[in-house]
């Protein structure tokens, strides 16, 4: 059963097509990711679903409600975390949670949420004294005050250290285990691979591909990736012409090439390097990732 349905959604700001014909559906208890660089249209799409922005055209349904027409009722049922909100600096953590709970006619939820997000020890701390990661966790806690069946998380782990990020991933997995639906935007590939049942890859206001992370990689890369550093002696076309190489890309001095037959390609590469006096360094073999898929589909990296 789909709890979010989007058909041909469009939103334009002046000349900029922020969202340019986006369609997708999110199933109940699914973690659905929107992966793309800044400016891809992820946030605009999510904020339309949350009832925060009007759309230009297209059909949108969240829990069977139209966010454009029934935002009031919808807001009671969804949990929202936005980017770059800096909450009341001189309120204590528990006070902010109780404040937000009051908007939904609830009270006494702070203890549960603080332990869920690992913020028990910061209960009496002022918001301004929290670290960036703790503030992010607080804003996720605020998305949970009304015990919502759908949670929208807009780049929830930005600014977190790796440990805090992993801990929030566990929390999100718990949401899913409780039967909640999560719509998550991110530009971290590992995050999408670890958490998402399905990922929509977005760029320039469009969805380029939607599938599970494994299938996205499998569809676009039957091959393994060979990575190495070089000074700049070998051109992309030259590398692509090596035996069994299907695709290559150069980012600075780092080269990724994808091969059907790793031993053949690698032998040919090393020989070419030797002939040209180009040292092939930091040679590494790995599986293709979502990052590679994104690069192949858009010609850009996620963090551009």
């Amino acid at each position: 059963m789909s709890v979010i349905e989007v058909q041909d959604l469009r939103k334009t700001y002046g000349d900029v097509k922020a969202v340019d014909g986006v369609s997708f559906a999110v199933e109940v208890a699914e973690v659905f990711g929107m992966l793309g660089p800044n400016g891809a249209g992820k946030t605009t799409t999510v904020e339309i679903l949350e009832g925060l922005r009007p759309r230009d055209s297209g059909a949108v349904g969240v829990l069977g409600m139209d966010p454009g027409r029934d935002a009031g009722n919808l807001k009671r049922k969804i949990g929202v975390q936005l980017q770059q909100v800096s909450l009341y600096p001189r309120l204590r953590v528990a006070e902010v949670i109780e404040l937000f709970a009051s908007f939904y006619g609830r009270a006494g939820v702070a203890d549960h949420l603080l332990s869920l997000l690992g913020l028990e020890e910061r209960r009496r701390a002022f918001v301004k004294d929290l670290s960036g990661g703790q503030q992010q966790r607080l804003s996720v806690a605020l998305a949970m005050v009304n015990d919502p069946p759908i949670i929208f998380l807009d780049e929830p782990t930005t600014g977190m250290d790796p440990q805090a990020r992993r801990s929030l991933w566990e929390t999100i997995e718990q949401f899913k285990a409780e039967g909640r639906t999560v719509l998550l935007t991110t530009h971290y590939m590992e995050e999408a691979e670890r958490l998402c049942d399905r990922v929509a890859v977005m760029d320039h206001g469009r969805i380029i591909a939607t599938d599970s992370p494994e299938d996205l990689v499998r569809t676009h890369f039957a091959e393994d990736a060979i990575e190495f550093s070089q000074r700049n002696g070998l051109a992309e076309a030259e590398i692509e012409s090596l035996p069994a190489v299907v695709n290559a890309s150069i980012q600075g001095d780092r080269v990724s090439m994808f091969s059907d037959d790793v031993p053949a390609s690698m032998a040919a590469l090393l020989q070419l390097g030797q002939e040209r006096g180009e040292p092939i360094q930091n040679l590494r073999l790995r599986r293709a990732t979502l990052e590679d898929v994104f690069l192949k589909l858009t010609g850009r990296t996620l963090r551009d």
Binding site: K75, V80, V85, S86, Y104
Partner: peptide
């Protein structure tokens, strides 16, 4: 400025 209004807009208040 601190986007708290935006966040409040996402609640039923």
């Amino acid at each position: 400025e601190r986007r708290v209004l935006r966040r409040l807009q996402a609640t039923p208040v």
